[in-house]
Each structure stands twice: as structure tokens, then as C-alpha cells.
Amino acid sequence: MHVNPEDTPPEMPSTIPITASAFHRTETQIGEEWSLIQAAQRDARRFGPLYEQYYRQLFLFVYKRVGDEDDAADVTAQVFVKALQNLNRYEDKGLPFASWLYRIALNEVNQFFRNNAKRSLTISTDSGSAIQLVAEIAEAQDECADEQQLQRMYAAMQRLAPDEVQLIQMRYFDKIPFKEVADILGISENNAKVRAFRLLQKLKKYMTP
């Protein structure tokens, strides 16, 4: 049974998009941010504005993966400690500051699961994004999917490696643009696209009954 997107509940759960303000910035904003970074590089106490600017985004990024509020707060704090420790090595050479922070966050999340082997990585999404992904996997024109397909996709995701899940999460559930996904993973944009395409192929294969 296909589910029409219109049939989905009108009240979409409030999964907060974390990407829009993180990556899409004007030149003025980028310039101002660079000034803040340079000030913080000279004096770590002046990192406060950047901390406030990015805390919420990074907290949610981490929360979606660790699945626990307190753990997310601890990991996020650790992300900023690491950012402060390495701030002097950050240079504005094409890598946006947000991507740099997300890269640290991704590493800290991975470190969290290495330190807590009994915990499992959380995949957080909303129904709409999940349905869109099913449609993309099926290469369907309409963004529609039935519950069975969704369950198959969730089951198929269980067969992916953690780094593959992270890429799916970032691109299709967090809606982070390919360019930024590539920056976070430290790969080229084309490579990110190729990896994503192959992952969709893999999921499609796994979803085939």
C-alpha cells in the first residue's frame, strides 16, 4: 500500500533542520565569523560568541546520533573543548568553520561509541525524510512509500557500516548539502556523491525481498 505524502500527519514532528543556518551564509557573515575566529585564536576567552552561535546546531547533531540528552551535552562540550584546543590550527582555506566543527563533532561521536561499546549509534529522522529516501532509492517520481518499504529500508540500514550510516544520516536526514558533507568527511564533493549513490544502490539491493 502506497502512502501519499498528503496522508502523512499534518503535524510533522519538530525535527529541527540543523543545516540551513550552519552552511548557507553571506560573505558579510563569513567575514564577521572569521574576525571572531581570529579574536578567539588570540584569546580563547573570546570564543564565547562562536560557542553560542554553533552550540544548538552541534548539540542537535550529536543528540541525533547518541540519542540521549545528557550524553549529547557531554559530547558537545567535548567538541568545543577540542575546538578550542585546535583553534590555532584552523585556517580559513576553503573549509567553512561550521564544517570544521561538524568534523570534530563526528569524531567525538565516534569516540563516544568507541568508549561505550554497549551503546548503539542512533539514526534519527522524521517520516518525511525517510519517505523521501525510500523514493530516491526506488528512483520513483512520487515521494511515497508504504510502511513495509520503510521497514525494509530501516532493516537494510542495519546492514550498513557506521560510516555509511553517518553519510545517509547527514545527507538524507540532516539535509546537509553534498559540498558540506564532503568537507565534514574530508573528501571531495564528487566522491561524496559517488559514495551516496552507491549506498542507495546497496540499500536498494538489501531492500529487495
Binding site: M12, P13, T15, Y55, T125, M157
Partner: peptide, 18 residues
């Protein structure tokens, strides 16, 4: 289960995050 999948899970609100 290898991964925990949460669908439509509401994150902490702004006040809690702050």
C-alpha cells in the same frame, strides 16, 4: 539491533538545550 532508529523523535526544546 546494530543501530537504534528513531523516527519523528522530538529533540529537546530550545530551553532545555540552553
Amino acid at each position: 539491533m546494530k543501530y537504534t532508529i528513531r523516527i519523528d523523535n522530538a529533540p529537546p526544546d530550545e530551553a532545555r538545550i540552553k
